[in-house]
Design a protein around this nucleic acid. Structure first.
Length: 980
RNA sequence: GGGUGAUUAGCUCAGUGGUAGAGCGCUUCGUUCACAUCGAAGAUGUCGGGAGUUCGAAUCUCUCAUCACCCA
């Protein structure tokens, strides 16, 4: 069988994938040794709508390297894969599809039908990314594939699983512990998707905008003196009398909801106005002027209108000052005035104001400005750049919006999550990210977890009519809220919330609660359920019915992925997997989801099972394009990993990513680099091809410790060193160091030197057998150690010989520097240095590459003489030396070279270029002189001798000696040159 | 405005106190029987500026400049 000159990745990769698959090579516990320690990693679940991008490729490569490495070491490995249902993203995709197909939109179809439709979409198109992962070589256990919506109502066959139960259980547990609450608060509202989103899903975008100044007339005929001119010390010198207060705003349309005007308590211009009122134009609502430090005297006019229902800062000011919050928009951010009791209460809106009803917020803005200009209360307009919050999915401006939502008490949960990292129960690497983690958790706000969507886990809360203690039903919500948990205002009534993991539990709870309150039996029905379904008829006197309505909202996707560690292992059941693989060994992820996901997993797992979800968190950088730009579809600079795999092979892509994975820095990916590592694969392939052509076959009985030839012992020692370097690098997540060590060994040691050294050895009958066996072993070790990085080409090469097992399950070596033979190491080191030096001189002297020349030895130590004699064949072949002779002194016109104290020369008078040689010597001497000067200075410094460690001083002395010796030889050569 | 990080060869980047490195690119030479997706040789650096600590600083401290990202 003869091998091609290159590895045909495209043809071979699918075959290898099939091979692994049919061997269930990646199954949980595959290749685990008896009594093995577990090693578990969670795949950060990609969105079900996603396709593999460079970030995934990077992330997965790192995880796969760890998984394959540990699996070969015999650990009990579980790499758990799965998909995220991605609420907004998925709903968006399916809605877009409906629109494209001209089908009824989701509102027309209804919730149940729509959700069914999403499941259908998932069955067809969801999870293509997992197929793409296989191309990359991901060795996760697909037989355990998880999905964050598995087991949810409406899930089709094949989508069973515990995840929905786990999510609801998590919610109920937190609810019962008082860590989830419902409240009317200002939230980030996405008017496009018509749902609340969390702080993290908001992007701040810088925009050019205006600062409008509006005049709000003072009421009750009030006037004041407003300073208009100042002296040099900033004292006002001239005033004008005003009967209005000028406020500045970037959002004039929100004025409809203004309930106050704030000024700074120390602002001399306005502080005397505090307690007075202004009349809101258009609306004719009376607004109190309040003092609040939020009003910045430096900004705008120093007086700021307060709209608590449409601005987070204003909400705070309003709370402090006791101002009303008036919502003037609907869920699509259209102005809503008609029938808006809050708005109309205490207002006498003009017809112009009422005409704004139903208009988009931006249209209303224009209209209001036009009216203000017309009516003379527009004071002026300044251009300004300000940041505007946008939805990260919809890209539309977020509207702060007053609604009832569910929140997680993140502050309480953050405590243990902070503690776990502070005490080192979980390590975050690189450490710099710990700071970010701490900072965020220390300043965390309640996490809004309810979403007004349909695709997701519906909140397991049902509402029924509230009954007070003693069986009294309050008539209205005007009075104070009942002093009980789980009682909320809903459509102007008090309702009692019942939370439970399933409907029957809730029904029972509710029936007991109502019975206790009303003193008679109560039968609970769920909305939409018939009396039959309710399962009972009134049997006793006084029995009544209560209808419970389920909260229509679903949970934030990140709430469910927040329990990914335990959910994928079977929680809330106490499964063997949970006991064995939890906590997981390491989480590998990008810093962009440190808050979204990592911190929340820490909080939720610690609360739910009291143990950290992972021992280590390895945060890697982002993949950018060659110019350092973040890859994005809109910029069109996206490198598609699948395309790159098609072109260069998965191994090349993986090795590139691993090489660039230095901690903490973004990596810029270029095709050149990938091509370079594709070439590295070819290099390895051809080394194997060389071995194949020379009859090197792996021998299971080969014992590297019993090899006798120096060159063989040398490369075996190098192999031992590599194993140590590699394991150390991988244990510290220094993937680039690991990749670099492999590259340097395989290319720089094995291919550049050992293969060349082997050639003359193969020609020698006495030396060939040991060398063949060593070559086979050395290359096998390369395959084993490269496998986690380049699984395809290594598995393919491994399969060239009969093997007991696949490479993916081969034993990872445990030998180390014990294989290094110091003598062989020194000897080969000197021989290689000699060859390097001769080559260098030849090239610089212009000796034709093909010419064979003579090497004269002048001054060699005994060991060097022995080394030269023993390795004569190597020197002759690799330095193209024809003859070697000893000489007492250098002949005229010979070129002198020094190699670690040895002096040799090349008598090449016929080809020598005297000027070139003079230049070469001068340059070498100058370099040595510079070094010697530095060393002399150091050694002449008494403080250095006195304070530097002894070994450093000794080393400097030795180096100076060697440098001076070499310089002397070269000076002598320079002098001889003068004779020519 | 606050925070974090970066600044090293033409480019992209390693390098945690003791002789400045890699890959790519570039120049010259070479198709010797593993590989031209190759081999050999070579050039290229006041390690962003300044100050300090130290026997010794690319590395530690301060400061300035520039850039990037995150948060408000």
């Amino acid at each position: 069988m003869s091998m091609d000159k290159t590895f045909d990745a495209r043809a071979v990769e699918p075959r290898i994938i099939a091979l692994w698959e049919s061997a269930s090579a990646f199954a949980m516990g595959a290749n685990a040794r008896e009594g093995a320690e577990p090693f578990s990693i969670l795949l950060p679940p990609p969105n079900v709508t996603g396709s593999l991008h460079m970030g995934h490729a990077f992330n997965h490569t790192l995880m796969d390297i760890l998984a394959r490495w540990r699996r070969m070491q015999g650990y009990d490995v579980l790499w758990q894969p799965g998909l995220d249902h991605a609420g907004i993203a998925t709903q968006m995709v399916v809605e877009r599809e409906l629109a494209k197909a001209g089908e009824p939109d989701r509102r027309e179809m209804g919730r149940e039908a729509f959700v069914r439709r999403v499941w259908e979409w998932k069955a067809e198109s969801g999870g293509t990314i997992l197929e793409q992962c296989k191309r990359l070589g991901d060795s996760f256990d697909l037989s355990r594939n998880a999905f964050t919506m598995s087991g949810a109502p409406g899930a089709p066959e094949g989508e069973e699983g515990n995840f929905h139960d786990a999510v609801l259980r998590a919610f109920v547990t937190l609810y019962e512990r008082g860590l989830i609450f419902r409240g009317k608060r200002l939230v980030n509202w996405d008017p496009h998707f018509e749902t609340a989103i969390s702080d993290l899903e908001v992007e701040q975008v810088e925009e050019k905008g205006n600062l409008w100044r509006l005049r709000y007339p003072l009421e009750n005929g009030e006037t004041y003196e407003h300073p208009v001119e100042w002296d040099e010390e900033g004292r006002p010198t001239r005033f004008e009398t005003r009967d209005y207060l000028t406020v500045a705003t970037t959002r004039p349309e929100t004025m409809l909801g203004d309930t106050g005007v704030a000024v700074h308590p120390d602002d001399p211009r306005y502080r005397h106005l505090v307690g007075k009122t202004v009349r809101l134009p258009l609306v004719n609502r009376s607004l109190p002027i309040v003092a609040d430090e939020h009003a910045d005297p430096e900004k705008g006019t120093g007086a700021v209108k307060i709209t608590p229902a449409h601005d987070f800062n204003d909400w705070e000011v309003g709370s402090r000052a006791g101002l009303r919050a008036i919502n003037v928009m609907d869920t699509r951010a259209r102005i809503t005035l008609e029938g808006n009791d809050d708005f109309l209460d205490g207002a006498e809106p003009t017809p112009e104001a009422m005409a704004l009803h139903g208009l988009d917020r931006y249209v209303a803005r224009e209209r209001i400005i036009a009216v203000a200009r017309e009516e003379g209360w527009l004071d002026g307009i300044d251009e300004e750049i300000h940041t505007v919050p946008h939805g990260d999915r919809s890209k539309v401006a977020i509207e702060p919006f007053l609604t009832d939502q569910w929140f997680v008490d993140a502050k309480t949960l953050a405590g243990p999550a902070l503690e776990a990292v502070r005490t080192g129960r979980t390590r975050i690497l690189p450490e710099q990210h710990e700071k970010t983690y701490f900072h965020w958790l220390e300043n965390i706000e309640p996490w809004c977890i309810s979403r007004q969507l349909w695709w997701g886990h519906q909140i397991p809360v049902w509402y029924g009519e509230y009954v007070g203690r003693g069986g009294v039903v309050p008539h209205s919500t005007r009075g104070p809220a009942p002093d009980e948990t789980g009682v909320f205002q809903e459509h102007g009534r008090w309702v009692k919330a019942f939370c439970g993991p399933d409907a029957e539990t809730v029904r029972e709870d509710a029936e007991n609660w109502y019975r206790a309150r009303l003193g008679h039996r109560v039968i609970v029905r769920f909305e939409g359920e018939s009396e039959d379904e309710a399962g009972a008829y009134p049997e006793e006197r006084g029995t009544s019915f209560v209808t419970l309505t389920r909260d229509p909202d679903v949970l934030d996707t990140w709430f469910s992925s927040g329990i990914w560690p335990i959910g994928t292992l079977g929680w809330p059941e106490d499964t063997p997997e949970l006991r064995r693989y939890y906590p997981t060994s390491v989480l590998v992820t990008g810093f962009d989801i440190l808050f979204f996901w990592v911190a929340r997993m820490m909080m939720m797992q610690l609360e739910l099972v009291g143990e950290v979800p992972f021992r280590d968190v390895y945060i890697h950088a982002l993949v950018r394009d060659e110019k350092g730009k973040k890859m994005s579809k809109s910029l069109g600079n996206v490198l598609d990993p699948i395309e790159l795999i098609d072109e260069y092979g998965a191994d090349a892509v993986r090795f590139t990513l691993a090489s660039m994975a230095a901690m903490g820095r973004d990596l810029k990916l270029s095709r050149d680099r990938i091509a370079g590592y594709r070439n590295f694969g070819t290099k390895l392939w051809n080394a194997a091809r060389f071995a194949e052509m020379n009859g090197c076959h792996p021998d299971p009985a080969f014992d590297p410790a019993r090899v006798t030839l120096t060159a063989n012992r040398w490369i075996i020692g190098e192999t031992g060193r590599l194993r140590e370097t590699l394991d150390e690098a991988l244990a510290g997540y220094r993937f680039n160091d690991a990749a670099g060590a492999l590259y340097a060994h395989v290319w720089g040691k094995v291919c550049d030197w050992y293969v060349e050294l082997a050639k003359p050895l193969f020609a020698d009958e006495a030396k060939a057998p040991e060398t063949r066996a060593t070559m086979a072993w050395v290359l096998d070790q390369c395959l084993v150690m490269l496998h986690p990085f380049m699984p395809f080409v290594t598995e393919a090469l491994w399969g060239q010989h009969d093997r007991a097992r696949l490479l993916v399950h081969a034993d990872w070596p445990t030998y180390g520097a014990d294989l290094v033979d110091a003598e062989a190491d020194a000897e080969m080191g000197w021989v290689i240095a000699l060859i390097d030096e001769i080559r260098s001189v030849r090239a610089q002297m212009g000796v034709p590459a093909g010419a064979r020349i003579t090497l004269l030895t002048l001054d060699l130590s005994e060991a060097q003489q022995a080394a030269l004699a023993a390795n004569r064949a190597f020197v002759e072949r690799l330095a193209r030396i024809e003859r070697m002779e000893a000489a007492a002194e250098a002949p005229k016109g010979a070129v002198t070279l020094t190699v670690r104290g040895a002096t040799l020369c090349l008598p090449i008078a016929d080809v020598i270029d005297i000027e070139a040689e003079r230049a070469r010597l001068a340059k070498a001497i100058a370099r040595l002189e510079k070094e010697a000067k530095g060393l002399r200075g150091k050694l002449g410094n008494e403080a250095f001798i006195a304070r530097a460690p002894e070994d450093v001083v000794d080393e400097a002395r030795a180096r100076l000696e060697a440098t001076e010796e070499e310089m002397a030889i070269l000076r002598a050569a320079e002098a001889r040159l003068a004779d020519l």
